[in-house]
């Protein structure tokens, strides 16, 4: 079985932030942008366009590390790898918002916000869940669907690497493919 993951090519990102808005939409209660923006507890994006060198945009999200520092730091065991294959997913019902995961995540991929899924719970860790529910339905992650430049792709890592090797080889041989 080929496991696909979201692959980021920051050099193709134009900073439009569509991934952010569609990510928040996909994680809202209604799942519909027009309604999502007026929900009582607003959903938050799990992917962020950071500012890179020379103000260039840099799409940034959870890498779903293995082993994952956030998971090791999580005292209540809220960051789980048994929900979906290859993904580290925050079980919001268990999260106590202590901030330990943010303290060890090297990628600035975790934020803390109140979430509608656990209303009245205080801020909890909000991070990419790989859109596992969408993927299970046969869709691609919301951020990938939103990306019009190809900076985000949902691909098999190995195939992606092969494509990169081909580009490198072509460049070395002066071939413009």
């Amino acid at each position: 079985m080929v496991v696909k993951s979201v692959i980021i090519r920051p050099e193709l990102c134009v900073g439009c932030m569509q991934c952010m808005i569609r990510c928040a939409e996909a994680h809202s209660e209604s799942g519909v942008l027009a309604l999502a923006v007026s929900e009582a507890v607003l959903a938050k994006p799990r992917i962020h366009i950071g500012v890179g060198p020379e103000l260039r945009p840099f799409p940034n999200k959870c890498r779903h590390c293995e082993p994952a520092p956030c998971q090791e730091a999580c005292m209540p065991g809220a960051i789980r790898s048994d929900i979906a294959e290859g993904l580290k997913i925050v079980d919001m019902a268990r999260c106590i918002g202590c901030g330990m995961c943010g303290m060890v995540c090297p990628y600035f991929a975790i934020r803390y916000y109140p979430a509608a899924q656990v209303a009245g719970h205080g801020a909890v860790a909000i991070k990419c869940d790989g859109c596992h529910e969408r993927v299970a339905r046969g869709q691609v992650p919301a951020c990938v669907e939103a990306c019009v430049t190809g900076a985000l792709a949902f691909e098999d890592v190995n195939r992606h690497m092969n494509a990169g090797v081909n580009r490198l080889a072509n460049a070395a041989l002066g071939v413009t493919a």
Partner: peptide
């Protein structure tokens, strides 16, 4: 789609985040 982008001047373009982030 939400009407939250503005290109009326060159200080921008600007967008307002509807999710408050």
């Amino acid at each position: 789609e939400l009407g939250l982008s503005c290109r009326n001047c060159a200080m921008g373009p600007c967008r307002i985040d509807p999710f408050g982030h």
